[in-house]
Write a protein that binds this DNA or RNA. Structure first.
Length: 501
RNA sequence: CGGGCUGUAGCUCAGCUUGGUAGAGCGCUGCGUUCGGGACGCAGAGGCCGAAGGUUCAAAUCCUUUCAGCCCGACCA
Protein backbone atom coordinates (compact mmCIF):
# COMPACT_ATOMS: atom_id res chain seq x y z
CA UNK A 1 0.00 0.00 0.00
CA UNK A 2 1.53 3.25 -1.10
CA UNK A 3 1.53 6.19 1.26
CA UNK A 4 -0.92 8.88 0.30
CA UNK A 5 0.76 12.25 0.29
CA UNK A 6 -1.48 15.00 1.53
CA UNK A 7 -0.59 17.24 -1.39
CA UNK A 8 0.07 16.47 -5.01
CA UNK A 9 3.13 18.69 -5.15
CA UNK A 10 6.23 18.07 -3.10
CA UNK A 11 7.83 20.13 -1.66
CA UNK A 12 5.04 22.51 -0.68
CA UNK A 13 5.30 26.26 -1.16
CA UNK A 14 6.17 26.75 2.48
CA UNK A 15 8.91 24.11 2.39
CA UNK A 16 10.79 25.29 -0.71
CA UNK A 17 9.20 27.81 -3.01
CA UNK A 18 11.61 27.66 -5.98
CA UNK A 19 11.54 23.87 -6.04
CA UNK A 20 7.75 23.87 -5.69
CA UNK A 21 7.60 26.10 -8.78
CA UNK A 22 9.67 23.66 -10.83
CA UNK A 23 7.51 20.77 -9.69
CA UNK A 24 4.29 22.56 -10.66
CA UNK A 25 5.65 23.22 -14.15
CA UNK A 26 6.39 19.53 -14.43
CA UNK A 27 3.24 18.17 -12.77
CA UNK A 28 0.96 20.45 -14.79
CA UNK A 29 2.70 19.31 -17.97
CA UNK A 30 3.48 22.86 -19.03
CA UNK A 31 7.08 22.53 -20.21
CA UNK A 32 10.25 20.51 -19.91
CA UNK A 33 13.98 21.11 -20.28
CA UNK A 34 15.22 20.72 -23.83
CA UNK A 35 18.34 19.37 -25.49
CA UNK A 36 19.55 22.94 -25.79
CA UNK A 37 20.98 24.46 -22.67
CA UNK A 38 18.77 27.16 -21.18
CA UNK A 39 15.91 26.54 -23.59
CA UNK A 40 12.65 24.76 -22.88
CA UNK A 41 10.10 22.71 -24.74
CA UNK A 42 6.67 24.23 -24.16
CA UNK A 43 4.24 21.32 -24.05
CA UNK A 44 0.68 21.42 -25.40
CA UNK A 45 -0.97 22.37 -22.10
CA UNK A 46 1.50 25.19 -21.49
CA UNK A 47 1.36 26.37 -25.07
CA UNK A 48 -2.44 26.43 -24.98
CA UNK A 49 -2.22 28.90 -22.09
CA UNK A 50 0.17 31.03 -24.11
CA UNK A 51 -2.17 30.89 -27.10
CA UNK A 52 -4.99 32.17 -24.93
CA UNK A 53 -2.79 34.99 -23.67
CA UNK A 54 -1.88 35.80 -27.26
CA UNK A 55 -5.44 35.78 -28.49
CA UNK A 56 -6.69 38.09 -25.74
CA UNK A 57 -3.83 40.54 -26.06
CA UNK A 58 -3.92 40.54 -29.83
CA UNK A 59 -7.57 41.56 -29.72
CA UNK A 60 -6.70 44.39 -27.35
CA UNK A 61 -3.83 45.57 -29.57
CA UNK A 62 -6.05 45.62 -32.64
CA UNK A 63 -8.75 47.46 -30.72
CA UNK A 64 -6.22 50.21 -29.96
CA UNK A 65 -5.28 50.59 -33.61
CA UNK A 66 -2.23 48.34 -33.94
CA UNK A 67 -1.40 45.99 -36.79
CA UNK A 68 0.73 42.87 -36.80
CA UNK A 69 3.80 42.49 -38.99
CA UNK A 70 6.93 40.35 -38.94
CA UNK A 71 10.59 41.35 -39.01
CA UNK A 72 13.70 39.18 -39.42
CA UNK A 73 15.15 36.97 -36.73
CA UNK A 74 18.63 38.17 -37.69
CA UNK A 75 19.95 41.65 -37.17
CA UNK A 76 23.15 42.95 -38.77
CA UNK A 77 25.65 43.50 -36.01
CA UNK A 78 26.25 47.06 -37.13
CA UNK A 79 22.63 47.95 -36.33
CA UNK A 80 23.17 47.22 -32.68
CA UNK A 81 26.14 49.53 -32.59
CA UNK A 82 24.11 52.59 -33.47
CA UNK A 83 22.55 53.33 -30.09
CA UNK A 84 25.26 53.47 -27.43
CA UNK A 85 23.22 52.57 -24.35
CA UNK A 86 21.43 49.87 -26.26
CA UNK A 87 24.73 48.13 -27.12
CA UNK A 88 25.80 48.37 -23.52
CA UNK A 89 22.58 46.67 -22.42
CA UNK A 90 22.47 43.73 -24.80
CA UNK A 91 25.95 43.05 -26.17
CA UNK A 92 26.80 40.67 -23.32
CA UNK A 93 23.96 38.31 -24.09
CA UNK A 94 23.80 38.04 -27.86
CA UNK A 95 23.95 34.89 -29.96
CA UNK A 96 26.09 35.61 -33.03
CA UNK A 97 25.85 33.97 -36.45
CA UNK A 98 29.17 33.97 -38.24
CA UNK A 99 28.89 31.31 -40.97
CA UNK A 100 26.37 30.13 -43.50
CA UNK A 101 27.61 26.63 -44.28
CA UNK A 102 28.95 23.53 -42.57
CA UNK A 103 31.56 21.13 -43.86
CA UNK A 104 33.00 17.82 -42.64
CA UNK A 105 35.82 18.24 -40.16
CA UNK A 106 38.85 15.89 -39.91
CA UNK A 107 37.38 14.09 -36.87
CA UNK A 108 34.33 12.94 -38.80
CA UNK A 109 32.03 15.63 -37.48
CA UNK A 110 31.01 18.98 -38.83
CA UNK A 111 32.41 22.47 -38.57
CA UNK A 112 31.53 25.91 -39.93
CA UNK A 113 33.21 26.19 -43.33
CA UNK A 114 35.96 28.81 -43.18
CA UNK A 115 35.11 29.76 -46.76
CA UNK A 116 31.55 30.50 -45.70
CA UNK A 117 32.33 33.13 -43.13
CA UNK A 118 29.90 36.05 -43.17
CA UNK A 119 31.33 39.40 -44.05
CA UNK A 120 29.27 40.98 -41.33
CA UNK A 121 28.14 38.78 -38.42
CA UNK A 122 24.41 38.62 -37.73
CA UNK A 123 23.02 38.56 -34.25
CA UNK A 124 19.90 36.70 -33.26
CA UNK A 125 17.48 39.40 -32.11
CA UNK A 126 17.44 40.05 -28.38
CA UNK A 127 14.76 42.64 -29.25
CA UNK A 128 13.97 44.39 -32.51
CA UNK A 129 14.17 48.15 -31.90
CA UNK A 130 17.08 48.54 -34.29
CA UNK A 131 15.86 46.60 -37.28
CA UNK A 132 12.32 47.88 -36.98
CA UNK A 133 13.66 51.41 -36.58
CA UNK A 134 15.70 50.99 -39.78
CA UNK A 135 12.55 49.81 -41.54
CA UNK A 136 10.49 52.68 -40.16
CA UNK A 137 13.04 55.12 -41.52
CA UNK A 138 12.16 53.92 -45.03
CA UNK A 139 8.43 53.92 -44.37
CA UNK A 140 8.25 57.40 -42.95
CA UNK A 141 8.66 60.47 -45.13
CA UNK A 142 5.85 62.81 -44.17
CA UNK A 143 3.87 63.64 -41.04
CA UNK A 144 1.01 62.11 -43.01
CA UNK A 145 2.68 58.68 -42.61
CA UNK A 146 2.40 58.91 -38.85
CA UNK A 147 1.63 57.39 -36.51
CA UNK A 148 2.86 53.93 -37.37
CA UNK A 149 1.51 51.36 -34.94
CA UNK A 150 3.08 47.92 -35.34
CA UNK A 151 3.19 44.79 -33.26
CA UNK A 152 5.02 41.54 -33.85
CA UNK A 153 4.68 38.14 -32.21
CA UNK A 154 8.10 36.54 -32.20
CA UNK A 155 10.81 34.64 -30.43
CA UNK A 156 13.93 36.36 -29.11
CA UNK A 157 17.22 35.12 -27.72
CA UNK A 158 19.12 36.49 -24.76
CA UNK A 159 22.07 34.42 -23.66
CA UNK A 160 21.25 34.32 -19.96
CA UNK A 161 23.70 32.55 -17.70
CA UNK A 162 21.07 31.41 -15.27
CA UNK A 163 17.68 30.27 -16.48
CA UNK A 164 14.36 29.24 -14.96
CA UNK A 165 11.39 27.78 -16.82
CA UNK A 166 9.17 30.55 -18.21
CA UNK A 167 10.73 33.21 -15.97
CA UNK A 168 14.04 33.47 -17.75
CA UNK A 169 15.04 31.23 -20.65
CA UNK A 170 17.61 31.75 -23.36
CA UNK A 171 14.98 31.74 -26.08
CA UNK A 172 11.51 32.98 -25.26
CA UNK A 173 8.30 33.94 -27.00
CA UNK A 174 6.92 37.41 -26.75
CA UNK A 175 5.17 40.26 -28.40
CA UNK A 176 6.91 43.52 -29.15
CA UNK A 177 5.02 46.65 -30.13
CA UNK A 178 6.88 49.40 -31.97
CA UNK A 179 5.37 52.74 -32.80
CA UNK A 180 6.49 56.03 -34.30
CA UNK A 181 4.77 59.35 -33.73
CA UNK A 182 4.97 62.95 -34.88
CA UNK A 183 5.05 64.43 -31.41
CA UNK A 184 6.52 63.87 -28.00
CA UNK A 185 3.07 64.08 -26.41
CA UNK A 186 1.56 61.53 -28.72
CA UNK A 187 4.37 59.03 -28.15
CA UNK A 188 4.14 59.46 -24.40
CA UNK A 189 0.39 58.91 -24.57
CA UNK A 190 0.99 55.70 -26.54
CA UNK A 191 3.47 54.47 -23.95
CA UNK A 192 0.94 55.02 -21.18
CA UNK A 193 -1.94 53.60 -23.20
CA UNK A 194 -0.13 50.29 -23.67
CA UNK A 195 0.81 50.22 -20.01
CA UNK A 196 -2.91 50.50 -19.27
CA UNK A 197 -3.68 47.72 -21.75
CA UNK A 198 -1.19 45.46 -19.99
CA UNK A 199 -2.54 46.33 -16.55
CA UNK A 200 -6.09 45.69 -17.66
CA UNK A 201 -5.10 42.37 -19.19
CA UNK A 202 -3.20 41.30 -16.08
CA UNK A 203 -6.02 42.14 -13.71
CA UNK A 204 -9.07 41.17 -15.73
CA UNK A 205 -7.79 38.19 -17.67
CA UNK A 206 -4.97 36.81 -15.55
CA UNK A 207 -6.71 37.77 -12.25
CA UNK A 208 -3.35 39.13 -11.19
CA UNK A 209 -3.28 42.52 -9.46
CA UNK A 210 -0.47 44.78 -10.69
CA UNK A 211 1.11 48.12 -9.91
CA UNK A 212 1.64 50.42 -12.85
CA UNK A 213 4.74 52.49 -12.44
CA UNK A 214 7.81 54.12 -13.87
CA UNK A 215 11.22 52.50 -13.56
CA UNK A 216 14.15 54.12 -11.79
CA UNK A 217 17.37 55.02 -13.66
CA UNK A 218 19.00 51.71 -12.80
CA UNK A 219 16.14 49.61 -14.13
CA UNK A 220 15.43 51.52 -17.33
CA UNK A 221 15.54 49.87 -20.77
CA UNK A 222 18.87 50.60 -22.51
CA UNK A 223 18.28 53.55 -24.79
CA UNK A 224 14.87 54.56 -23.40
CA UNK A 225 13.96 57.95 -21.99
CA UNK A 226 11.42 56.40 -19.66
CA UNK A 227 10.43 52.80 -18.92
CA UNK A 228 7.10 51.88 -17.37
CA UNK A 229 6.19 48.46 -16.06
CA UNK A 230 3.46 46.49 -14.45
CA UNK A 231 4.71 44.82 -11.30
CA UNK A 232 3.00 41.83 -9.73
CA UNK A 233 3.65 40.19 -6.38
CA UNK A 234 4.15 36.45 -6.26
CA UNK A 235 3.10 34.22 -3.36
CA UNK A 236 6.59 34.27 -1.89
CA UNK A 237 6.24 38.05 -1.74
CA UNK A 238 8.84 38.67 -4.41
CA UNK A 239 7.96 41.11 -7.17
CA UNK A 240 7.84 40.13 -10.82
CA UNK A 241 7.99 42.55 -13.73
CA UNK A 242 5.19 41.31 -15.93
CA UNK A 243 5.24 43.80 -18.79
CA UNK A 244 7.08 46.90 -19.93
CA UNK A 245 6.31 49.94 -22.03
CA UNK A 246 9.10 52.27 -23.12
CA UNK A 247 9.06 55.88 -24.21
CA UNK A 248 12.14 56.03 -26.43
CA UNK A 249 12.05 59.77 -27.09
CA UNK A 250 14.06 60.54 -30.22
CA UNK A 251 17.02 58.37 -29.20
CA UNK A 252 16.35 55.57 -31.64
CA UNK A 253 15.01 57.94 -34.26
CA UNK A 254 18.33 59.76 -34.24
CA UNK A 255 20.31 56.53 -34.33
CA UNK A 256 18.21 55.09 -37.15
CA UNK A 257 17.48 58.29 -39.07
CA UNK A 258 13.72 58.08 -38.60
CA UNK A 259 12.90 61.50 -39.99
CA UNK A 260 9.90 63.10 -41.59
CA UNK A 261 8.85 66.41 -43.04
CA UNK A 262 6.45 68.20 -40.70
CA UNK A 263 3.63 70.56 -41.63
CA UNK A 264 5.95 73.52 -41.87
CA UNK A 265 8.27 71.64 -44.21
CA UNK A 266 11.09 70.95 -41.76
CA UNK A 267 12.89 67.62 -41.45
CA UNK A 268 12.38 66.43 -37.87
CA UNK A 269 12.98 63.22 -35.94
CA UNK A 270 10.06 61.00 -35.01
CA UNK A 271 9.23 59.95 -31.46
CA UNK A 272 9.12 56.23 -30.86
CA UNK A 273 7.89 53.72 -28.29
CA UNK A 274 8.18 50.00 -27.71
CA UNK A 275 6.36 47.65 -25.37
CA UNK A 276 6.29 43.93 -24.68
CA UNK A 277 5.17 40.98 -22.64
CA UNK A 278 6.56 37.47 -22.85
CA UNK A 279 6.01 33.85 -21.91
CA UNK A 280 7.17 35.03 -18.51
CA UNK A 281 3.49 35.78 -17.96
CA UNK A 282 2.93 32.04 -17.71
CA UNK A 283 5.42 31.97 -14.84
CA UNK A 284 3.59 34.87 -13.23
CA UNK A 285 0.33 33.01 -13.57
CA UNK A 286 1.76 29.96 -11.86
CA UNK A 287 3.26 31.86 -8.96
CA UNK A 288 0.19 34.01 -8.40
CA UNK A 289 -2.53 31.39 -8.12
CA UNK A 290 -1.21 27.88 -7.81
CA UNK A 291 -1.26 25.82 -4.61
CA UNK A 292 0.28 22.70 -3.11
CA UNK A 293 -1.82 20.50 -5.38
CA UNK A 294 -0.44 22.10 -8.53
CA UNK A 295 -1.55 24.66 -11.06
CA UNK A 296 -4.64 26.81 -10.54
CA UNK A 297 -5.80 28.54 -13.72
CA UNK A 298 -7.99 31.60 -14.00
CA UNK A 299 -10.98 30.57 -16.16
CA UNK A 300 -10.33 33.26 -18.75
CA UNK A 301 -7.00 31.65 -19.69
CA UNK A 302 -7.71 27.99 -18.96
CA UNK A 303 -7.37 25.76 -22.05
CA UNK A 304 -10.34 23.85 -20.64
CA UNK A 305 -12.94 25.34 -18.31
CA UNK A 306 -14.56 22.07 -17.43
CA UNK A 307 -13.19 18.54 -17.54
CA UNK A 308 -15.63 15.65 -17.46
CA UNK A 309 -14.44 12.37 -15.98
CA UNK A 310 -16.71 9.40 -16.68
CA UNK A 311 -16.77 6.62 -14.08
CA UNK A 312 -17.94 3.15 -14.93
CA UNK A 313 -17.19 -0.53 -14.41
CA UNK A 314 -18.97 -2.68 -16.98
CA UNK A 315 -19.32 -2.09 -20.70
CA UNK A 316 -23.02 -1.43 -20.22
CA UNK A 317 -22.28 1.28 -17.72
CA UNK A 318 -19.63 2.66 -19.99
CA UNK A 319 -22.07 3.09 -22.86
CA UNK A 320 -24.66 4.69 -20.65
CA UNK A 321 -22.26 7.00 -18.79
CA UNK A 322 -20.42 8.09 -21.92
CA UNK A 323 -23.64 8.97 -23.71
CA UNK A 324 -24.67 11.08 -20.71
CA UNK A 325 -21.24 12.77 -20.69
CA UNK A 326 -21.32 13.47 -24.41
CA UNK A 327 -24.63 15.25 -24.17
CA UNK A 328 -23.43 17.08 -21.06
CA UNK A 329 -20.40 18.23 -22.99
CA UNK A 330 -22.51 19.35 -25.89
CA UNK A 331 -24.82 21.43 -23.73
CA UNK A 332 -21.98 22.95 -21.75
CA UNK A 333 -20.22 23.92 -24.96
CA UNK A 334 -23.37 25.73 -26.03
CA UNK A 335 -23.01 27.97 -22.96
CA UNK A 336 -20.92 31.10 -23.21
CA UNK A 337 -18.31 32.46 -20.87
CA UNK A 338 -16.20 35.58 -21.44
CA UNK A 339 -17.83 36.00 -24.86
CA UNK A 340 -16.71 32.58 -26.05
CA UNK A 341 -18.12 29.06 -25.91
CA UNK A 342 -17.37 27.21 -22.67
CA UNK A 343 -14.34 24.98 -23.25
CA UNK A 344 -15.07 21.40 -22.23
CA UNK A 345 -12.89 18.34 -22.24
CA UNK A 346 -14.20 14.82 -21.88
CA UNK A 347 -11.46 12.52 -20.63
CA UNK A 348 -12.39 8.95 -21.47
CA UNK A 349 -8.87 7.60 -21.48
CA UNK A 350 -8.58 4.12 -20.12
CA UNK A 351 -6.59 4.83 -16.97
CA UNK A 352 -7.37 4.60 -13.29
CA UNK A 353 -9.96 7.12 -12.15
CA UNK A 354 -7.98 8.42 -9.20
CA UNK A 355 -4.90 9.05 -11.23
CA UNK A 356 -6.91 10.69 -13.96
CA UNK A 357 -8.57 13.01 -11.46
CA UNK A 358 -5.26 14.11 -9.98
CA UNK A 359 -3.80 14.82 -13.38
CA UNK A 360 -6.52 17.40 -13.97
CA UNK A 361 -6.18 18.82 -10.48
CA UNK A 362 -2.47 19.34 -11.09
CA UNK A 363 -3.19 20.93 -14.46
CA UNK A 364 -5.44 23.48 -12.83
CA UNK A 365 -8.74 23.06 -14.70
CA UNK A 366 -11.26 25.36 -12.96
CA UNK A 367 -14.15 22.90 -12.75
CA UNK A 368 -13.92 19.12 -12.55
CA UNK A 369 -17.01 17.02 -13.13
CA UNK A 370 -17.25 13.35 -12.28
CA UNK A 371 -20.10 11.33 -13.69
CA UNK A 372 -20.92 7.79 -12.62
CA UNK A 373 -23.93 5.51 -13.06
CA UNK A 374 -25.52 6.88 -9.90
CA UNK A 375 -25.37 10.43 -11.27
CA UNK A 376 -26.83 9.29 -14.56
CA UNK A 377 -29.73 7.63 -12.73
CA UNK A 378 -30.35 10.73 -10.62
CA UNK A 379 -29.87 13.23 -13.45
CA UNK A 380 -27.00 14.83 -11.56
CA UNK A 381 -23.27 15.52 -11.86
CA UNK A 382 -20.60 15.59 -9.20
CA UNK A 383 -18.76 18.91 -9.53
CA UNK A 384 -15.69 20.34 -7.80
CA UNK A 385 -14.05 23.76 -8.07
CA UNK A 386 -10.28 23.87 -8.33
CA UNK A 387 -9.94 27.22 -6.58
CA UNK A 388 -11.57 26.13 -3.32
CA UNK A 389 -10.34 22.54 -3.22
CA UNK A 390 -12.34 19.83 -1.53
CA UNK A 391 -14.13 16.89 -3.04
CA UNK A 392 -17.03 18.75 -4.60
CA UNK A 393 -20.74 18.03 -4.45
CA UNK A 394 -23.64 16.57 -6.39
CA UNK A 395 -25.58 19.05 -8.49
CA UNK A 396 -28.65 18.62 -10.66
CA UNK A 397 -27.39 18.39 -14.25
CA UNK A 398 -29.48 21.18 -15.78
CA UNK A 399 -28.76 23.49 -12.91
CA UNK A 400 -25.04 22.87 -13.32
CA UNK A 401 -25.23 23.71 -17.02
CA UNK A 402 -27.27 26.85 -16.41
CA UNK A 403 -24.87 28.18 -13.77
CA UNK A 404 -21.53 27.14 -15.26
CA UNK A 405 -20.78 30.56 -16.68
CA UNK A 406 -21.60 32.28 -13.40
CA UNK A 407 -19.45 29.78 -11.52
CA UNK A 408 -16.50 30.49 -13.81
CA UNK A 409 -16.99 34.20 -13.17
CA UNK A 410 -16.96 33.54 -9.47
CA UNK A 411 -13.74 31.51 -9.72
CA UNK A 412 -12.08 34.27 -11.72
CA UNK A 413 -13.12 36.80 -9.08
CA UNK A 414 -12.07 34.59 -6.17
CA UNK A 415 -8.58 34.23 -7.65
CA UNK A 416 -8.19 37.97 -8.13
CA UNK A 417 -9.50 38.77 -4.66
CA UNK A 418 -7.24 36.20 -3.08
CA UNK A 419 -4.17 37.55 -4.86
CA UNK A 420 -5.14 41.13 -4.01
CA UNK A 421 -5.58 40.21 -0.34
CA UNK A 422 -2.18 38.51 -0.27
CA UNK A 423 -0.59 41.60 -1.75
CA UNK A 424 -2.34 43.93 0.68
CA UNK A 425 -1.18 41.73 3.54
CA UNK A 426 2.43 42.07 2.35
CA UNK A 427 2.38 45.78 1.60
CA UNK A 428 3.76 48.37 4.02
CA UNK A 429 4.76 52.02 4.13
CA UNK A 430 8.23 52.50 5.55
CA UNK A 431 9.80 55.79 6.58
CA UNK A 432 13.15 54.90 8.10
CA UNK A 433 16.14 52.99 6.78
CA UNK A 434 16.27 51.01 10.02
CA UNK A 435 12.73 49.78 9.57
CA UNK A 436 13.45 49.10 5.89
CA UNK A 437 16.41 46.90 6.78
CA UNK A 438 14.31 45.01 9.30
CA UNK A 439 11.54 44.45 6.75
CA UNK A 440 13.99 42.98 4.24
CA UNK A 441 16.17 41.14 6.80
CA UNK A 442 17.51 37.71 5.84
CA UNK A 443 14.73 35.61 7.46
CA UNK A 444 11.95 38.14 7.12
CA UNK A 445 9.18 37.31 4.64
CA UNK A 446 9.58 40.73 3.02
CA UNK A 447 6.96 42.13 0.71
CA UNK A 448 6.27 45.43 -1.01
CA UNK A 449 7.59 48.52 0.74
CA UNK A 450 6.39 51.99 -0.25
CA UNK A 451 9.13 54.48 0.61
CA UNK A 452 10.26 57.97 -0.12
CA UNK A 453 13.48 57.95 -2.09
CA UNK A 454 15.81 59.94 -4.25
CA UNK A 455 17.36 57.99 -7.07
CA UNK A 456 21.15 57.79 -6.92
CA UNK A 457 24.26 55.81 -6.09
CA UNK A 458 23.65 55.96 -2.35
CA UNK A 459 20.32 54.20 -2.76
CA UNK A 460 21.73 51.70 -5.26
CA UNK A 461 24.45 50.70 -2.82
CA UNK A 462 22.08 50.17 0.12
CA UNK A 463 19.69 48.19 -2.04
CA UNK A 464 22.37 45.94 -3.43
CA UNK A 465 23.49 45.11 0.08
CA UNK A 466 19.97 44.08 1.04
CA UNK A 467 19.26 42.31 -2.26
CA UNK A 468 16.28 44.57 -2.71
CA UNK A 469 15.37 46.43 -5.88
CA UNK A 470 13.40 49.56 -6.67
CA UNK A 471 10.48 48.18 -8.62
CA UNK A 472 8.81 51.36 -9.80
CA UNK A 473 7.25 54.67 -8.88
CA UNK A 474 3.50 54.11 -9.14
CA UNK A 475 1.97 56.31 -11.81
CA UNK A 476 -1.23 56.78 -9.85
CA UNK A 477 0.60 57.44 -6.57
CA UNK A 478 -0.26 60.55 -4.63
CA UNK A 479 2.05 63.51 -4.23
CA UNK A 480 3.28 63.57 -0.67
CA UNK A 481 6.18 65.37 0.94
CA UNK A 482 8.72 63.24 2.73
CA UNK A 483 12.38 62.42 3.06
CA UNK A 484 14.43 59.84 1.18
CA UNK A 485 15.07 56.98 3.60
CA UNK A 486 18.55 56.49 2.16
CA UNK A 487 19.86 60.05 1.93
CA UNK A 488 17.43 62.23 3.89
CA UNK A 489 16.91 64.44 0.85
CA UNK A 490 13.41 65.78 0.28
CA UNK A 491 11.13 63.62 -1.87
CA UNK A 492 7.61 64.11 -3.15
CA UNK A 493 6.68 60.56 -4.08
CA UNK A 494 6.96 57.04 -2.80
CA UNK A 495 8.48 54.21 -4.77
CA UNK A 496 7.85 50.48 -4.44
CA UNK A 497 10.72 48.35 -3.17
CA UNK A 498 10.88 44.57 -3.09
CA UNK A 499 13.00 41.55 -3.66
CA UNK A 500 12.45 40.57 -7.25
CA UNK A 501 12.68 37.84 -9.85
C1' C B 1 32.73 34.08 -15.83
C1' G B 2 34.71 32.45 -10.34
C1' G B 3 33.66 28.63 -5.87
C1' G B 4 31.31 23.82 -4.49
C1' C B 5 28.74 19.27 -6.00
C1' U B 6 26.88 15.52 -9.40
C1' G B 7 26.82 12.39 -14.09
C1' U B 8 24.70 4.35 -13.47
C1' A B 9 17.36 1.88 -16.76
C1' G B 10 12.29 6.77 -19.12
C1' C B 11 12.56 9.19 -13.75
C1' U B 12 14.81 9.26 -8.52
C1' C B 13 18.94 6.95 -6.91
C1' A B 14 22.11 2.56 -4.51
C1' G B 15 26.79 0.13 -5.80
C1' C B 16 32.68 3.12 -6.02
C1' U B 17 36.47 3.63 0.12
C1' U B 18 38.34 -2.63 0.11
C1' G B 19 38.55 -3.51 -8.88
C1' G B 20 36.04 -9.69 -10.30
C1' U B 21 31.52 -9.14 -16.69
C1' A B 22 24.96 -4.29 -13.27
C1' G B 23 20.78 -3.31 -8.75
C1' A B 24 16.16 -1.00 -6.20
C1' G B 25 11.80 2.00 -6.19
C1' C B 26 8.65 4.54 -9.42
C1' G B 27 7.11 4.56 -14.56
C1' C B 28 6.24 1.37 -18.98
C1' U B 29 4.02 -3.58 -21.48
C1' G B 30 0.84 -8.07 -20.69
C1' C B 31 -2.52 -11.05 -17.62
C1' G B 32 -5.47 -11.19 -13.32
C1' U B 33 -7.91 -9.17 -8.74
C1' U B 34 -9.93 -4.71 -7.15
C1' C B 35 -12.44 0.06 -7.94
C1' G B 36 -17.01 6.58 -6.82
C1' G B 37 -11.03 6.08 -7.49
C1' G B 38 -3.86 8.51 -6.95
C1' A B 39 -5.01 0.22 -5.23
C1' C B 40 -2.74 -4.81 -5.42
C1' G B 41 -0.54 -9.57 -7.34
C1' C B 42 2.15 -12.23 -11.05
C1' A B 43 5.02 -12.07 -15.47
C1' G B 44 8.04 -9.01 -18.73
C1' A B 45 10.75 -5.15 -21.70
C1' G B 46 14.55 -1.67 -20.78
C1' G B 47 21.52 0.13 -19.22
C1' C B 48 28.24 -1.31 -23.53
C1' C B 49 27.55 2.76 -15.83
C1' G B 50 28.41 11.03 -19.64
C1' A B 51 32.80 10.76 -23.30
C1' A B 52 38.07 9.80 -24.47
C1' G B 53 42.65 7.91 -22.87
C1' G B 54 45.66 5.30 -19.04
C1' U B 55 46.91 1.45 -14.97
C1' U B 56 45.53 -3.92 -14.58
C1' C B 57 44.73 -10.85 -16.07
C1' A B 58 40.23 -7.90 -14.95
C1' A B 59 37.52 -0.97 -14.32
C1' A B 60 30.81 1.66 -12.96
C1' U B 61 34.78 1.24 -9.12
C1' C B 62 41.73 3.64 -9.37
C1' C B 63 44.43 7.83 -12.44
C1' U B 64 44.36 11.84 -16.37
C1' U B 65 41.69 14.76 -19.75
C1' U B 66 37.12 16.44 -21.59
C1' C B 67 31.86 17.38 -21.96
C1' A B 68 27.19 18.15 -19.55
C1' G B 69 23.96 19.36 -15.49
C1' C B 70 22.81 21.32 -10.40
C1' C B 71 23.72 24.79 -6.23
C1' C B 72 26.17 29.52 -4.48
C1' G B 73 28.16 34.11 -6.29
C1' A B 74 28.74 37.85 -10.26
C1' C B 75 25.51 39.34 -14.31
C1' C B 76 20.37 40.06 -15.91
C1' A B 77 14.93 45.74 -20.78
Amino acid sequence: MAKKPKNAISPTRAENYPEWYQQVVKAADLAEPSDVRGCMVIKPWGYAIWENIQRKLDTMFKATGHENAYFPLFIPMSFLEKEAEHVEGFAKECAVVTHHRLEPDPDGGLRPAPSAKLEEPLIVRPTSETIIGATFSRWIESYRDLPILINQWANVVRWELRTRMFLRTTEFLWQEGHTAHATDTEAQAETRLMLDVYAQFAEETMAMPVIKGEKTDGERFPGAVATYSIEAMMQDRKALQAGTSHFLGQNFAKAQEIKFQDQSGDQVYAWTTSWGVSTRLVGALIMTHSDDDGLVLPPKLAPAHVVILPIYKSDDERTEVLAYCESLKEELTAQRYDEEPVRVRLDDRDIRGGEKKWQWVKRGVPIRVEVGPRDVAAGKVFAARRDVGGKGEGVVRDEFIATVSATLDEIQKTLFDRAAAARKEATVRIDTLEEFKKFFAEKSPGGLAYCHFVDGPQMEAELKELKVTARCVPVDGEEENGKCIFSGKPSSRRGVFARAY
